[in-house]
């Protein structure tokens, strides 16, 4: 969509918004509309020339340019005929519904009713409401999320049963700060009291959550859990797997550095931060892995397979 189209959509919302919010602040209004203050001033300069057909002075929308330039306040009038915003476009409605469905995947039972009723009201105002998009996040048990959210609000400590990506079990004791989603999985971001560092825990691997005793340390801001968080881990090493076609699905499930399709096999470069994760991946793929480079990266998995086979022979 070109910038003029975006601008017209915005202007049609700005006029009713500014009539409903007299003396609105320029910076705050710009933030709410997702544009810079400069862009908002340009928008107002367009509206200055808009109005009822005929274009006589009394027909135009009025904006107090002195208040705008002097104190950054927006006073717009003489536009009673644009008192309500336009209906949602299908793209807007569907994008907003996806966002709310993602919210619903993360909240606990006590907040779900509000999200559901908001969704129902928006669907009633949505064109094409018969096939709106669905969202599924692997976010574990809703009671786990509710217990964590309550502890975050109360600024408390918790401990819980946890199975990590290498399938190791532990009982971390943490100060929880946020529930987040990356690439379709929900995570708890928390300060680990044992490790004295920030940690993330996958929500679908958290068992029972219990309140824990102790004093919550004074915490700064947790590190940014941006889209590229996994790639940025400094201790990660590159491992190349040569995979038979039946194991090629991993390229759709795990972040990869490079994928090189071949005739009968595909080569995949993975960033591995956790040796236990690679061990369980290689064990899971079994005969689907044709080669591992460097070869020593497969040593853990080979050892684990030999241990298991020994246990089978003993049994």
């Amino acid at each position: 969509m070109n910038t003029s189209a975006d601008q017209v959509i915005r202007l049609l919302s700005l006029v009713p918004y500014l009539q409903r919010n007299p003396d609105a602040d320029l910076t705050e209004t710009a933030a709410r509309f997702g544009v810079s203050s400069e862009q908002l001033v340009e928008d107002l300069n367009v509206l200055w020339y808009c109005g009822l057909p005929g274009g006589l002075p009394g027909d135009l929308i009025e904006i107090d340019m002195d208040a705008l330039e002097g104190s950054g306040r927006i006073r717009l009038s003489n536009a009673d005929y644009l008192a309500r915003p336009m209906r949602f476009t299908p793209d807007e409605a569907l994008s907003l519904l996806v966002a709310l469905r993602a919210v619903r995947e993360l909240t606990g039972p006590s907040d779900t009713d509000g999200v559901d009723s908001a969704l129902a009201k928006l669907e009633s105002a949505t064109p094409a409401a018969d096939a709106t998009p669905a969202v599924t996040v692997a976010s574990g048990d809703e009671h786990v999320r509710a217990a964590l959210a309550a502890a975050i609000d109360a600024r408390g400590l918790v401990e819980f049963d946890y199975t990590d990506s290498g399938l190791e079990s532990s009982v971390p004791k943490v100060a929880p700060v946020k529930l987040i989603v990356r690439d379709g999985y929900g995570y708890l971001q928390a300060w680990s009291l044992e490790r004295r560092d920030w940690r993330t825990y996958r929500l679908d691997r958290i068992g029972t959550v219990r309140p824990a005793k102790g004093r919550r340390p004074r915490l700064g801001e947790p590190p940014d859990f941006g889209a590229g968080w996994l790639e940025l881990r400094p201790d990660a090493a590159t491992v190349t797997l040569r995979l038979a076609p039946e194991a090629g699905w991993i390229t759709e499930y795990y972040p990869t550095l490079a994928v090189r399709p071949g005739e009968s096999a595909v080569e995949v470069d993975l960033l591995v931060a956790d040796p236990a994760w690679l061990r369980s991946l290689l064990l899971r793929l079994g005969p689907g892995v044709l080669a591992v480079s460097p070869p020593e990266a497969a040593a853990d998995a080979r050892q684990a397979a030999e241990d298991a086979l020994r246990a089978y022979r003993a049994g």
């Binding site: 975006d6 959509i9 915005r10 919302s13 700005l14 006029v15 009713p16 918004y17 409903r20 709410r32 509309f33 997702g34 309500r84 915003p85 336009m86 949602f88 476009t89 793209d91 807007e92 409605a93 994008s95 907003l96 996806v98 966002a99 993602a102 919210v103 995947e105 993360l106 909240t107 907040d111 969202v135 996040v137 959210a149 975050i152 609000d153 700060v177 946020k178 529930l179 987040i180 989603v181 990356r182 690439d183 379709g184 859990f225 889209a227």
Partner: peptide, 30 residues
Amino acid sequence: GRTVSALAKLRAAGVDPDPTRLSAFAPSVG
């Protein structure tokens, strides 16, 4: 951008979305 535009229409209709109450949650869709 489309979501912000939809929320702007709601604001223009007098709705005031409140980002503070559920601040423990940071859902995302890529």
